[in-house]
C-alpha cells in the first residue's frame, strides 16, 4: 500500500474553511445555488432552515461525501478533492444516523469510532468520557437497547475524547447533534463545542436550537437561499 505522507493536524494551527459558489441539484430541484462562506479557526457556522432546505446536503458536501455540481471547498487555501487524505484527516462528520453498531455496546462503539478516527485512547480515558456524558453505568449495554438520547451521547463521548487527543480532526460537521438530547445533554454539547472552538477548531452545525457557544458564530439561514429558485422553478 502506498504510504500517504499526511501531516497530522495540530489543534494549535490556524485553519480556514471556505466554500466557493457551491451548486447542487437533485432532479429538477436546485438545493444549493451558488453558496459561499468563509470560516476561520475558532468560529462556528450555524446552519438554520426548515426541513429540506439543504442543511444535510451542505454538510455532506463539506465532508466530501457528496460532490457538488459546481463550486469548490477550500481548506487552508487548497482546493479539496473528495475524500482525499487531507480531507479525511481534517473532517469529522456526525450525521443524523448515530453511526453506531447495534450489536456493539456503548463502550465498544466508542472504541470503534475512535479507532476509525485513528485515535488510541486508554481505558481510563474512555471511561472518563463515558462518565462525562452520563453513560458510565450503561457502557456494557448493547446500543440497540439504548434510547435515542443515549445514542446521541455516545457521539458526544467520541467528540469529547477526540478533543483530548493531539491529532484530532479540526473540522467538525455535525448534523442536528442536539436531536433527542435533553437540556442537560444540550448544555454538555455546548461545553464540548466551546472547548473545540477555543482550541482552534472549526464547527459547522445544523441545528434548530440556540446554542451558547461564547464565540463568534456565523448564522446562515438556508430558507432565504432556496426560496428564490423554488419560485423561479415554478
Amino acid at each position: 500500500m502506498a504510504v500517504t505522507g499526511v501531516p497530522a493536524s495540530t489543534t494549535n494551527a490556524m485553519h480556514n474553511l471556505a466554500a466557493r459558489d457551491l451548486r447542487l441539484e437533485r432532479g429538477a430541484r436546485s438545493i444549493l445555488n451558488g453558496l459561499s462562506v468563509d470560516i476561520e479557526s475558532g468560529q462556528a457556522l450555524i446552519l438554520r432552515g426548515a426541513n429540506g432546505t439543504g442543511k444535510t446536503s451542505l454538510l455532506r458536501i463539506l465532508a466530501g461525501l457528496t460532490l457538488p455540481d459546481a463550486g469548490a471547498v477550500v481548506w487552508n487555501g487548497k482546493k479539496l478533492k473528495a475524500l482525499s487524505a487531507t480531507w479525511r484527516n481534517a473532517a469529522l462528520y456526525l450525521g443524523h444516523t448515530n453511526a453506531l453498531k447495534d450489536d456493539f455496546t456503548a463502550e465498544e462503539n466508542l472504541l470503534d469510532a475512535l479507532s476509525i478516527d485513528g485515535i488510541t485512547a486508554d481505558h481510563a480515558a474512555q471511561l472518563a468520557a463515558l462518565e462525562k456524558v452520563g453513560l458510565a453505568d450503561r457502557r456494557h449495554v448493547l446500543s440497540r437497547r439504548l434510547s435515542q438520547g443515549q445514542k446521541r451521547r455516545v457521539g458526544l463521548a467520541r467528540l469529547s475524547l477526540a478533543l483530548t487527543h493531539k491529532t484530532h480532526k479540526p473540522l467538525w460537521l455535525l448534523d442536528e447533534p442536539t436531536n433527542a438530547l435533553d437540556a442537560n445533554g444540550v448544555a454538555l454539547f455546548s461545553s464540548i463545542m466551546r472547548d473545540h472552538l477555543e482550541s482552534g477548531g472549526i464547527a459547522c452545525i445544523a441545528t434548530h436550537l440556540v446554542l451558547d457557544l461564547a464565540s463568534p458564530a456565523i448564522e446562515m439561514n438556508l430558507d432565504s437561499l432556496t426560496d428564490s429558485f423554488e419560485k423561479s422553478a415554478r
Partner: peptide
C-alpha cells in the same frame, strides 16, 4: 460514512 472519512 465514518469508514469513508476515516484517517485510513
Amino acid at each position: 460514512e465514518q469508514l469513508a472519512l476515516s484517517v485510513y
